[in-house]
Amino acid sequence: MTADIRTRIHEIVAEQAMIDVADVTDASVPADLGVDSMGLVEAIFAIEEAFDIHVPFNANAPDARNFDYSTVGSIVAAVERLVAEQRG
């Protein structure tokens, strides 16, 4: 499951950034890949649709600890947690 989540999130970020998925790593910073604030909102929507989860994210309080998007790896970890919480 974890590998699947990682793969799918790498694909979502790559699609959002319009780059090759091979260029996305867990260490990648979304902003460095060209994902701006609106791109982030769109990527989070794609993640919610892909995993059928709700991601608590408010663009007005992006520093909130409830969804760490500082790197692609932190997004993977956050989604793993949300999937476990929300889909049991």
Binding site: V41, I44, F45, F57, N58, A59, N60, A61
Partner: peptide, 20 residues
């Protein structure tokens, strides 16, 4: 809702604790 800019409590313009 989709834009992720809406507050779930209230509107607090110019406030450090604003939520949308």
């Amino acid at each position: 809702e989709g834009l992720r800019v809406m507050s779930r409590d209230t509107c607090r313009p110019f406030c450090a604790t604003r939520s949308g």
